[in-house]
Design a protein around this nucleic acid. Sequence first.
DNA 1: ACAAAAGTGTTTGGAGTACACCCATGA
DNA 2: TCATGGGTGTACTCCAAACACTTTTGT
Lengths: 236, 236
Amino acid sequence: MSDDKIYNPHISVDCVVFGFDGEALKVLLIERNIQEQNELYNDKKLPGSIIFNSEDLDEAASRVLTELTGLKNIYLSQFQSFGNPKRTSNPRDVLWLERTTQLKIGRIVTVAYVALIKINRKLVFNADGTSVNWYDIKDVAGMNLAFDHAEIIKKGLAYIRHRFDIEPNLLFELLPRKFTISQLRSLYDTVHQTRSDVRNFQKKITQWSYVVALDEIEIGVPHRAARLYKFDIKNK
Amino acid sequence: MSDDKIYNPHISVDCVVFGFDGEALKVLLIERNIQEQNELYNDKKLPGSIIFNSEDLDEAASRVLTELTGLKNIYLSQFQSFGNPKRTSNPRDVLWLERTTQLKIGRIVTVAYVALIKINRKLVFNADGTSVNWYDIKDVAGMNLAFDHAEIIKKGLAYIRHRFDIEPNLLFELLPRKFTISQLRSLYDTVHQTRSDVRNFQKKITQWSYVVALDEIEIGVPHRAARLYKFDIKNK
DNA sequence: ACAAAAGTGTTTGGAGTACACCCATGA
DNA sequence: TCATGGGTGTACTCCAAACACTTTTGT
């Protein structure tokens, strides 16, 4: 009897998946529709799963993302674990879990990850019938979220902002493969909550050796077309 | 039947406790002596514990430290969870756990914390008979450590170094209440693995408004006595 | 021709780094 | 008086920030 597909109902992983649509930071959330007595209850939750017994934590997070999006090689980073005993005290959440997992659920400690994906990739959301959507970070505060997912998103956002600070490389996980300096600046300003000066920003970027100019420009824009760049990690 | 004192044998916390003796960074480790067949096996482990069912993770870590040192109000910060299924695969570790906890032990995910304490405080180590000691960070690599504790210490060290960078306040958790600028510089250089210029360091410190000079100087030193300073968070 | 965004240099202030000598104290 | 660490100032470099006009292209 192998542990391979046996769930461990004490530990889960949850992923705060960020994307950037050119304007705002977005998070991937899964819609939950719960039939209760004679009402339909509706809220949102983070993509996540309890772990398999044979699985390392990173593997479990990676599995969640692959199952959800069909993508491999997504940037993933563990940032915090949440274990307040009350986080699974809402009967609605426990019932829902027991129904979905077919397991008796007690207390669950969750290990939270952030993930970064290019929002333009056409995603195959395999969350069997339930709907998965991008939501603006700014709207999340006012939303109905399962478990302690509101807190997890808040912490995940703070974490990834800080990571971008010390590892600006990560910005390129959110941009299309070919991008303009304006797009990069817009993303940079969104995550840093700043409004950079155009000239100073150009100067900064030319010092990032891994941002390389292409012999291409934008097409189909109603104004002067901008030069396209790519990210090349090989350039140190 | 309350959950209060019921252990949850699936999740543990481990604390990487740092101290500074004026020369080097030290970690607190607990010695383990295991009688095996006709040999006595000896190694070291981090202070830690499986959690109670009623406990939040931070509470559990805090409990571990209070039980171990008798101190309250220790700086504590969760930094990473470790859940490789193989981390509890050494039969020696499992046996030891089952003997100490009187519970059937399977896979355990551990949530790791770093703690900072003033090494000069005379500590009451209550680890019933087993010996608890400070070890130089540099010597840890060559030591025999239980579970994956070698890895946890390495990650904890990297984490806290980074935290010191962005929150220099934390340095004062490791210094005596009254300290000299040399002591501070020595700690700073140990943490940053640098060798600061004395004059430039003084200049830097005078800009840290929360380091305030006292009307006192060192006593009993065989050379010119240095001025003493204290850390005062109230000064912004 | 006009609307809309692209692209481009110079100046200034603050922070970090390099560097050497005299001072106070105890033994 | 000597050995040991304490304490102090100046000059240079580099990076971040402020700031405005011309160019290109589609409509």
